[in-house]
Design a protein around this nucleic acid. Structure first.
Ligand SMILES: [Mn+2]
Ligand SMILES: [Mn+2]
Ligand SMILES: [Mn+2]
Ligand SMILES: [Mn+2]
Lengths: 228, 228
DNA sequence: CTACAAAGTTAGCATAGGCTAACATTGTTT
DNA sequence: AAACAATGTTAGCCTATGCTAACTTTGTAG
């Protein structure tokens, strides 16, 4: 079993490799809030364990094994977040720090039970996909709301940003996943959008609309069929 | 926040001090499965932190602060076990190793939520008392079944032994907490007891009857409402 | 009282993680 | 090509936690 520290490094490497084409030690150290020498010494150990391909001064790349282990930690994290929200009544803005810890629990049975009680969900409370038991990660669904045109009717399927502040802001606006949103207007001057949803009408600055992922269909149902 | 290691030491010290009048470093090292020098160096650190009173060659004694911190870890452990059994469908023989990990999660909100969803239970799935939020531990209820007389009708309220093997053995016998047990006979030769409960009749060796705690009343109900 | 065994302690070492300061490499910008 | 900033690496140090081997203290059995 990998230590919590190693699991966090693997997760960070996976997240970074999905954001950029090439991942550096600086990226990693910034992502985890550790010094570059700390990241440097850890990547050597990960490489020794066959979890990372590494040559001095070259970009970092997870091996297939490393990628899989990282995805399985993400699976535990997102199942936990879903469980906390759906079964324990937490708000979506509260669950990340708890899941950050519970993801390191070594108990396949615990996470299997969560999965079963939740009906094998495909997405976490923030709309991010939950990797399957083999570590496969399905693509996220949706495009930015900021790219929609007046008249479009879409469904909120995910968030580009899940910071507590942003989530609390959405709470105040009454915006939740699966909300049906009609685009009323877009201000060409600053890109802000007027939207109608759930009996409300609000104006979102472009920066906010950029963070909201929307689609014209509800997300895939639980029974693991491939969409998209 | 204490590290998981420190929390485990505190818990072991509390458990030992409830078993014996005086706790030694040898006891502690045996309980935790670490070497005596390891225990020795840890107690020095605990003493520095004001969690333990310690003089060379003298018995160990938790301070009030140490006792409280230990009890609060036990609270997290037992709430978790209860949650896993009552809300997630685990068997009482499966939950200890999971709770041994989850007890170290730093999230008051998580355990408050468990407590609330469970209706503030007083006992864990093995009949052990759940310390309150101030770290007070109520007395366990019941005497050994082996001390009962033929004709006595009692209720199973707790276990002296919660090892997985013993719990599985009780599963096979269909013995569960709150079972109503009638003592049919006791063999004076070897102390084995014939008991009747839940439509079954079984003979328990004295060693087993020693591990079962029974009372003539149901255990204290959770604040207000009674559980099943 | 004396031995001896058990218990406790110390010394020395190891591994996992983390840090800062200093040095080296790389790639970009004149 | 030279210089510089960004990036990466090394060296040296720290804390937490563990170990074994060796020594000391304590308490008990003769
Ligand atoms: Mn999260
Ligand atoms: Mn984590
Ligand atoms: Mn337990
Ligand atoms: Mn534990």
């Amino acid at each position: 079993m990998a230590s919590p520290t190693v699991e966090n490094y693997l997760k960070a490497l996976l997240a970074l490799s999905r954001q950029r084409d090439t991942v550096s030690i600086s990226d990693l150290s910034a992502e985890l809030g550790v010094s570059k020498p700390s990241a440097n010494s850890m990547i050597k150990r990960l490489a020794e364990q066959g979890l990372l391909e590494y040559e001095r001064y070259r970009p970092l790349r997870l091996t297939e094994e490393g990628r899989k282990q990282a995805a399985l930690v993400v699976r535990k994290h997102r199942l936990t977040e879903m469980y906390l929200v759906e079964k324990m009544g937490f708000g979506w803005e509260e669950v990340h720090p708890i899941a950050e810890q519970i993801e390191h629990i070594d108990s396949p049975a615990l996470f299997e039970r969560m999965d079963q009680l939740l009906g094998s969900p495909d997405f976490d409370p923030h709309g991010s996909p939950i990797p399957d038991r083999q570590g496969n990660i399905s693509a996220r669904i949706g495009q930015r709301l900021s790219g929609c045109e007046p008249g479009d009717v879409v469904i909120l399927t995910g968030l580009e940003n899940s910071s507590p502040d942003f989530l609390r802001y959405l709470n105040e606006k009454g915006l939740r996943l699966d909300a049906v949103i009609k685009v009323a207007a877009r201000e060409s001057y600053d890109g802000s959008m007027r939207i109608i949803y759930g009996g409300r009408e609000e104006t979102l600055p472009k920066g906010t609309a950029d963070q909201l992922l929307v689609a014209t269909q509800l997300r895939a149902p639980a029974s693991g069929t491939s969409t998209r």
